[in-house]
């Protein structure tokens, strides 16, 4: 329970109107009068596609911005305002750079096979007529990730989750049924594709999480590595997809004006 009553009606209405609206709508609780039931939830994705200051990525012509991108300004902490920086500042820069690139490069050299591969994958996904619906797999993925890779992380749970992900992937690759075969706003298809991406992403997160033997920002391992270890882990985790699994590497942290320091509040 989160008790905000001591703040008083005026401050709650003035300063926390959005939180009050959420509490009243979803929990039926007015925080002026009662404590609000709370639980962990995925609020914001730190990390993401590695970009430079103009949203450019490793792939020429591909730009990333917002929650999907990682300009690496804030590190592993979800500080108030992370997302503002990603959208307002770097979103603007990425948008501008992407537009400039698109205007200067009207055609892109793509191997014919890339397009054929994508089309074949889509067709294969749409052709499955019997098997599991994606939602069952998605639910199992979400539930197990929350349990084993949630707020506080334990080595053995993370290792177990790696196995669970392998099972989930096997189920997914056996073929999931997409009921919508149409080509207008087919969110059944996009959700099935996204599920595949989520499984890949979970594998990357787990590999990096197990390897990072320290606690930093949102990566908390209070049972085996409760402290931050700048000597060994003051570095970015970089995941690349290598054929059938993620490949982890590290990248130096570049800092200029401010020296990184432990958060002590």
């Amino acid at each position: 329970m989160l008790d905000m009553r001591h703040l008083g009606a005026e401050r709650i209405i003035d300063r926390l109107p959005g939180s009050r609206e959420l509490s009243m709508t979803f929990a039926g609780v007015d925080p002026i009068y009662d404590p609000v039931p709370v639980r962990p939830g995925a609020h914001y994705h730190m990390g993401g596609v590695e970009t430079g200051n103009d949203g450019e990525t490793e792939l020429t012509g591909l730009y990333a911005a917002g929650e999907v991108a990682c300009v690496s300004v804030h590190g592993a902490n979800r500080l108030g305002g992370n997302s503002l920086m990603e959208t307002i500042t770097f979103g603007r820069r990425a948008g501008r750079a992407a537009a400039e690139w698109a205007l200067a490069n009207t055609t892109v050299d793509l191997p014919e096979s890339a397009k054929a591969d994508a089309e074949r994958e889509l067709k294969a996904l749409l052709d499955v007529s019997s098997g599991e619906r994606p939602w069952q797999i998605r639910n199992d993925l979400g539930t197990s990730m929350l349990e084993n890779f949630g707020v506080f992380r334990r080595e053995e749970q993370m290792t177990r989750q790696v196995e669970i992900i392998a099972e989930v992937r096997e189920r997914y690759e056996r073929g999931v049924v997409v009921e919508d075969k149409g080509d207008v706003f087919n969110s059944d298809l996009t959700q099935a594709i996204e599920l595949g991406n989520m499984i890949d992403l979970a594998a990357c997160m787990l590999q990096a999480g197990v390897a990072r033997k320290e606690s930093r920002g949102a990566h908390a391992r209070p049972y085996d590595y409760p402290d931050r270890d700048d000597e060994n882990f003051m570095k970015h985790s970089i995941s690349r997809w290598a054929g059938d699994g993620p490949e982890l590497s590290w990248k130096e942290v570049r800092y200029t004006k401010f020296d990184p320091m432990e958060r002590k509040y």
């Binding site: 209405i13 003035d14 109107p17 609206e21």
Partner: peptide, 14 residues
């Protein structure tokens, strides 16, 4: 005016 401030659960607020 504070739009969200007007939300109430059937009793006066504050």
């Amino acid at each position: 005016e504070r739009a969200l401030g007007r939300l109430s659960h059937g009793h006066g607020v504050g």
